[in-house]
Design a protein around this nucleic acid. Structure first.
Lengths: 254, 254
DNA sequence: CGTCAGCCTTGACACAGATCAACCCGAGGT
DNA sequence: ACCTCGGGTTGATCTGTGTCAAGGCTGACG
């Protein structure tokens, strides 16, 4: 979300310099990061961590999408975060996980063993600062989402989700960002929602039926078009943002 | 919420050592903190900062209650945070405020000018670490609240709010914590909700009428009792927590 | 090629909570 | 003593989503 976060996306292909964690570190610290780092991959649907588990690592998503969810005993679940490539997972200083982390597509994560990472953090102010930065971004996102959950209608919720996904996909693709839609539609944006209707429902505090209905409603209204079930084309972003009832024009002010 | 945060409540009377910000600092750093610190007070209803304003300070609440809110153009508002004594306000490293901060009771804040505070932070790892700690706590609270907003019924929402207020009041009072209820009721907890029904509604994503109705419902069910409009007596905390449908038994796991 | 399992859509109906409206109550102010 | 005003309660009705149920589409697999 923040400018700082957007600069450091070159982690997606996780080069020697692990910029998602700290884009300002010097060679030495980066070297140290590399020493304690390893990769893990998860298949779609597989849990990464279960709430309450002991955390043995922190890390960031390299590719794929994972979700952060909470569940009540009776099964009601709420997604509390969406982890896209470059997002950080883990809470240095905390021992247990507070949420379930589940891979919704195949996911590759770049992990650091927690202990050495924390030690490195103490020695390296840049990393601690970067982490504070990222945590503040997450906090902003969570609070923005509270407005969505508490006050928006189903239709506005869907539109909000769509515009967030469009925007985030924009900051992802290898340069292309949001691929320009079919050329007959200049200015159009298109992207894949890589979530099932149910996952969207859990994110938005709705049922999957309502999600489905509102998506078709937006389609009928011409705000979006669908190719298959998952590929969305937005002919006019402003129109979508307006449907989201959003005051914040997109990115958070920084 | 976290153990670390609870230890440092002696800020409430804001002594020489500013422990809410860093309970582990040495004399020198604390001295530095004191040099750049000043107090501000706000009357009930008065805005502390308006979203988008330039932030010139950071600080923490010494007494009273303030709220963090977001508003849409059409007036719908959602409270995204509740600031009780010892809570931190401000985002080191960010220039603009992201939310409206309003004093809902008379409030005294202990402020640090932003620039020197940030400089101090860079020099003093303890403070940066403490701040990360506090931000993670806020993030946890925000995400817990997302579950409340997205998936709980009106009644569960009210119960959740009540138990949070009871719990937070507990960690506040000068030693007494949650005053033991009237002596005929051992084990009872009582506290003041210092919010109007409307403020509660904004926090819970409800209307004030629904809040009112659900409070009377809980009263009729014997889960709570009221003294006047604002003073709540909880004969049996477990009962209330159960009404909140809460898996988390109260404090977050740390 | 048929069948099966996931995922999605659509319809009919129920209900929690919003909306609109009237009224209550207690604290100041004159 | 009276008025006023902000906050709170309560009732009647409306409506957006949830719930339950049926059916469609597509891709994997025998």
């Amino acid at each position: 979300m923040s400018a700082a976060q957007m600069q450091s996306l070159d982690c997606s292909d996780c080069p020697i310099r692990h910029r998602a964690v700290c884009s300002r570190c010097e060679a030495d610290e980066l070297e140290a990061l590399n020493v304690i780092k390893y990769y893990r991959s998860f298949q779609a649907g597989q849990p990464v961590i279960w709430s309450g588990d002991q955390m043995t690592f922190v890390g960031s998503v390299v590719s794929g999408i994972a979700t952060l969810t909470q569940t009540m005993e009776d099964g009601r679940t709420q997604m509390v975060g969406l982890l896209l490539p470059s997002d950080f997972v883990g809470r240095p200083g905390r021992s247990g996980a507070a949420y379930n982390v589940v891979a919704t597509t195949d996911v590759v994560m770049c992990c650091f063993r927690k202990k050495p990472f924390e030690e490195l953090m103490v020695r390296t102010p840049h990393i601690a600062q970067r982490l504070l930065e990222m945590t503040l971004d997450e906090l902003d996102a969570a609070r923005e989402w509270m407005l969505v959950l508490g006050r928006k209608t189903a239709r506005e919720k869907i539109a909000s989700l769509m515009s967030i996904l469009a925007r985030r996909n924009a900051s992802l693709g290898p340069e292309l960002g949001p691929e320009p839609g079919p050329e007959e539609m200049p200015g159009a944006v298109s992207f894949d929602l890589k979530l099932t209707r149910e996952a969207m429902a859990d994110y938005l505090g709705l049922t999957l039926e309502t999600v489905s209905r509102q998506i078709t409603a937006l389609k009928k209204a011409g705000v979006i078009r669908l190719e298959g079930k998952r590929h969305v084309i937005v002919p006019d972003m402003r129109r979508l943002i307006e449907e989201a009832g959003d005051d914040s024009d997109g990115g958070l002010v920084d």
